[in-house]
């Protein structure tokens, strides 16, 4: 029985990029860098690492583009590259030494909802928001890389279980059990805020 062709909204851009159209690949970079940056940043909790890793991810994707056969969507394919490279990076980083995390991230200031909240909030509440943000980063970093990956994809990026299982190449059951275990751990870390 023939497999149903995957409906990939980026098929045309990918085809052009494979044919050597650099502008088409630039369009893919523009389209996917915010989402991929989110994943890499939440996994590493470090802006510089996220930036460098993302550059490497797109460079690798560009080199391997001819090998992309369309068995999955381009998004799933490049997300898998980003996830694998990030996990490898984290393993190397853990071997080197415990790395100091970014101080309270200033990125939160760029979000409209957060800006509103910061205007309304009094200094005491603002300091509590900063504190919460720091605590969230620390709690995420306390998880293993595999657990952090599913939390990042599911809770932060809102990805469905099926897509996460494709990206990580594990069963949906494994994704669910990792999520459950990660949530248990996070509950104990964030008990002051629950």
């Amino acid at each position: 029985m023939a497999k149903e062709p995957i409906n990939d909204p980026d098929r045309e851009l990918v085809r052009r990029a494979q044919a050597g159209d650099t502008e088409a690949f630039d369009s893919l970079v523009i389209k996917f860098s915010p989402r991929l940056y989110g994943m890499v940043y939440h996994m590493t909790s470090n802006r510089d690492d996220a930036h460098d890793l993302l550059q490497d991810v797109f460079a690798k994707a560009y080199r391997s583009l001819k090998r992309f056969r369309g068995k999955s969507t381009f998004y799933t394919w490049i997300y898998s590259i980003a996830t694998n490279m990030t996990l490898n990076h984290l393993k190397k980083r853990n071997r080197r030494a415990a790395q100091s995390l970014d101080d309270v991230d200033s990125g939160i200031q760029n979000d409209d909802a957060m800006i509103d909240l910061r205007h309304i909030a009094n200094p005491r509440q603002q300091s509590r928001i900063h504190e919460l943000q720091k605590k969230l980063n620390e709690s995420l970093q306390a998880l293993s890389e595999e657990h952090r990956a599913v939390v990042t994809m599911f809770d932060i990026q809102g990805m469905p279980h099926a897509q996460i299982s494709k990206i990580l190449n594990v069963s949906e059951g494994t994704v669910r059990s990792r999520l459950y275990y990660a949530h248990q751990q996070l509950q104990s870390h964030l008990s002051d805020y629950l």
Binding site: L136, L140, G158
Partner: peptide
């Protein structure tokens, strides 16, 4: 408590680069 944790963690999606 699990839902509360998920809501807290979801706040991180508002962290954007400059």
């Amino acid at each position: 408590p699990e839902d509360k944790v998920q809501k807290l963690i979801a706040l991180k999606r508002y962290e954007n680069p400059p």
